[in-house]
């Protein structure tokens, strides 16, 4: 059986239905690493490169949301209109791998792999993105928090294709920060996305837990301590950082230590909450 190359979403879902267990290939930046390193031997592959529905994004001004197809490369999020609509996503996209990776990799890959180090995932989490899944004749919408169920596990069914995500357009300040031990092309040691959306503060963390984490206590504390103009005092920022650290669940691995990650994610939270605000 060859690599299947559907040219529409309906064709793709039909192929997936006809070929249970087929491997879905989007940008290839995760899958091919596994193949090259002998960790995976694909038999049936459905390549989504030519499915236009997955490679588009669209703005819904009425709803105040943006839909981003699962195969839209990160490159297109880094600058331009999308970057204006969701700046934190632009910042996250810019930290993904190298320029070559950002030309191929996409949110569908981050969601499909569901690594806690997936760079775009804290943004999706902080903004309560909706994940759209398509199978033959049906679609299903899942809040991203329900989609990411565990380390490298998600709630996609075998017959489903990740169509894309819907995110709210920014209506408050937002930002993303990622710690890596190199100034470019690095896997996250700790990352965080902060957003003030609809007046409520949200923070989501990457690489400091089995999945991307939200920090409800810290968010609650901050919502009670935001100044009327949305600004944050140094003391409040510091306490927010402390609470975020507390809510993180990092581990030791070859990339860093739990102690450092817990510390770093608190510093990121403290800085993010004041970023872009004149103090």
């Amino acid at each position: 059986m060859p690599v299947l190359l559907p040219t529409s979403l309906s064709e793709a879902t039909q192929m997936l239905s006809d070929t249970p267990g087929a491997t879905l290939l989007a940008g290839g930046t995760d899958l091919m690493v596994e193949v090259n390193f002998n960790h995976r031997k694909p038999n049936d592959v459905i390549a989504l490169r030519h499915v236009p529905e997955l490679s588009q994004w669209s703005l819904n001004k009425v709803a105040g949301t943006v839909f981003i197809g699962s195969a839209v490369p990160y490159k297109h999020m880094e600058s331009g209109e999308l970057a204006q609509l969701v700046p934190a996503l632009a910042q996250a996209a810019r930290t993904v791998g190298s320029p070559q990776i950002r030309a191929a990799g996409s949110i569908g890959g981050n969601l499909g792999t569901c690594s806690p180090a997936g760079d775009s995932l804290p943004v999706l989490s902080a903004l309560d993105a909706i994940v759209h899944l398509a199978s033959v004749n049906t679609t299903r919408d899942v809040p991203v928090s329900d989609f990411m169920v565990g380390p490298k596990r998600n709630s996609r069914e075998q017959n489903e294709i990740i169509l894309g995500v819907t995110l709210p357009i920014r209506n408050g300040r937002q930002g993303y920060a990622k710690v890596g031990v190199r100034n470019a092309m690095v896997i996250s040691v700790a990352s965080a996305c902060f957003a003030l959306q609809d007046g409520s503060p949200r923070i989501a963390l990457g690489s400091v837990g089995p999945t991307v984490l939200r920090c409800p206590h810290a968010e609650q504390f901050l919502s009670q301590n935001l100044a009327a103009d949305g600004s944050v005092s140094d003391d409040v920022a510091k306490e927010f950082g402390r609470l975020v650290s507390q809510e993180s669940k990092p581990i030791d691995d070859h990339r860093s230590t739990a102690v450092y990650r817990r510390h770093a994610v608190g510093v990121l939270a403290q800085r993010l909450v004041q970023r872009g605000v004149q103090s």
């Binding site: 930290t95 920060a177 990622k178 710690v179 190199r182 100034n183 470019a184 800085r271």
Partner: peptide, 16 residues
């Protein structure tokens, strides 16, 4: 930010 430690990860500002 590319001149600062952390680079495109935007982890810091000048004052840090």
């Amino acid at each position: 930010e590319l001149h600062l430690p952390g680079g495109s990860g935007i982890t810091s500002e000048r004052k840090h």
